[in-house]
Amino acid sequence: MTTDIGPGTAPLVPSFDTPATGRKLAIICSKGSLDMAYPGLILANAALGEGVEVHLFFTFWGFDIINRKHMADLKFTPLGNPATHMPQGLGGLPGMTAMATHQMRKAIADLDVPDVPDFLEQITGSGGHLWACRMSADMQHLTEDDLYDGVEAIISASDFIEMTEGAQLLFI
């Protein structure tokens, strides 16, 4: 069925800028495996594309995502993960983690989704904010020099909570 919206009525245009809700999203990334790094990065990127203010807080194992030494080398293991639908005994065989990691990286790259360092660059380029957890930095004896350039600062958990007042929150 065709409805004609003729002259004299306002043209139908997608509402890109309204409503200006001031929506904010806080994402806490606490895991450092390849498969657990991506959900936070993908959701952050999607929210930025919708004009949402996004803050990511990297803590505990999630610190590996912004640790220069490990960020390009995150791993995936089928061990202890029943969702791979493989016999659990296989997961512990030598080389299995390397093979599973390789396959997951390839599947991600085939979709034209960036690797972790490129993804962080895309997120900061889109206006996203990256924050590192003070306690995790102290536990691992790391300073800002050890972290990805786009990380704005090492801050305490209370700083992050204060800064994300009113935000929707995801813990991953």
């Binding site: 919206i5 003729g6 043209p11 139908l12 245009v13 997608p14």
Partner: peptide
Amino acid sequence: STTTIGGHTLTVDDEG
């Protein structure tokens, strides 16, 4: 539906 923008009649979806 159709909508008229800048003198052009265009076929659009629900969002425009």
